[in-house]
Structures are given as C-alpha cells and as structure tokens.
C-alpha cells in the first residue's frame, strides 16, 4: 500500500465525517465540506465541458480540419451570453428559439409514443375473475382511471368524480409508499457503503502502521 493511497483515503474519510457531522447539528466542519464540494464541482464541470465539448467539437474541427461550419453553432451558443447584458439580451432569444425548436420537435412525437401510446396499449388488459391475473388487470385499470380522474381540472372533486379522485389519491399514496420504501433501501445502501469504506480505511491504516 503506497503512502499516496493512504493519504487520499484519509482525506476522503475526513470529508465523509465532516458531512456526517451535520446529523448532529450545523458546524464549521460541515460548512467547510459544503463549500469545498460547491467549488470543486463548479471547477470540475467547467474543465470537463472544455475538454469534452469545446476542444473536440469546436477547436479541433476548426483549427485542425478546417471544418469552419462548426463555428455556426458556436456563434449561436455564444449568443446566449448576451443574456448578461440588459441592452443585448434580446439576441439570446434566437439561440434559445433554435434550441427549443429542435428539442421540442424531436421530443414531442417520441414522448407521446413512448410515454402515452405504448403505455395506453399496455394498459388495455382483459379484465376477468377466472384467474388472479384478471384481477390484477382490474386493479391496474382502476388505478390508471382513478389517477387520471384525480388530475382532471375541469370539474370540481364532487360526487362520483370526487369519489373516484379520492380513490385515485389513495392509489397514488400507495405508489408513493412503495417509492419511499425503495428510497430507504437506496439511502441505507449509501450509508452501508460509507461505513464499509471507513472500516476498510481502518484495516488499511492498521496494516500499514502495525503490519496486521
């Protein structure tokens, strides 16, 4: 085990404990780690964009391959910076309109296809009581219908609509419960991973210092 690994692992451990200290209450160690992560992430993102975006997609094509047309989207991108000036902020709208136009054009048909039509097709299920699947299908149908009714804004939630909407919100809450359970699992995984890493650090340091 080299010294560098031990030092970096110790730094990681220290920062983990700084963040964990927040569980007790806000303190200077937490503040230090908080400000460090804000600064590091901003710097990291700027660098990664520069080396993975600007260099291979602007600098190299234009300067090395003479593909000057890469300058057109670059200019469009730079136009968005006009937002920082009150006088020239209108220029940025061209770039945003261009981006929005393409993004919406590509997204809407595919979103409709993948999130609505395919789901609609998958929900048209035979409902019967001859086996358990038929009953599950009925539950799925009821859930979808009542959920949709809850999100109906053209009518007040009164009478039959109100009843269905109430059932809809109950079904939503059951779904949220399942989601929350899975989240607890996820958060415990993260904690378990950190604790395991702390344990590994302890084993590593004791081995390095005392050889066991």
């Amino acid at each position: 085990m080299d010294l560098g690994t031990i030092i970096w692992n110790t730094v990681a451990l220290f920062l983990t404990l700084c963040i964990f200290s927040f569980l007790y209450k806000d303190n200077p160690f937490y503040k230090f780690a908080e400000h460090l992560v804000v600064g590091v992430s901003a710097g990291y993102f700027a660098i990664i964009l520069y080396f993975n975006g600007f260099i291979p997609k602007v600098w190299e094509p234009v300067t090395q391959k003479g593909e000057w047309w890469y300058l057109l989207p670059t200019i469009l991108g730079m136009m968005t910076w006009a937002r920082f000036s009150k006088k020239w902020s209108w220029i940025s709208r061209f770039a945003i309109a261009f981006y929005m136009g393409i993004a919406v054009g590509v997204a809407i048909p595919l979103e409709m296809q993948q999130r609505v039509i395919k789901q609609l097709h998958a929900t048209m299920l035979p409902v019967h009581f001859t086996n358990i699947q038929g009953v599950w299908n009925l539950l799925i149908m009821l859930g979808v219908l009542c959920g949709l009714i809850y999100f109906f804004f053209s009518m007040g939630h009164k009478g039959v609509v109100g009843g269905a909407a109430r059932l809809g919100i109950w079904i939503l809450m059951i779904g949220f419960g399942a989601g929350f359970g899975l989240t607890v699992m996820g958060r415990i995984s993260l904690l378990a991973d950190r604790i395991t890493e702390i344990h590994n650090w302890y084993l590593m340091v004791t081995k390095a210092l005392w050889g066991f």
């Binding site: 998958a122 699992m185 996820g186």
Partner: peptide, 16 residues
Amino acid sequence: TGVMTANYYPYLASGQ
C-alpha cells in the same frame, strides 16, 4: 438506483 426503481416498472410491463 432504489429511488428510481418504481418509476420504471410501467416500461417493463409494456415491454419498452
């Protein structure tokens, strides 16, 4: 991740 799992079951059911 665990948080996201429940969200993707409808896509599994529809075969996407």
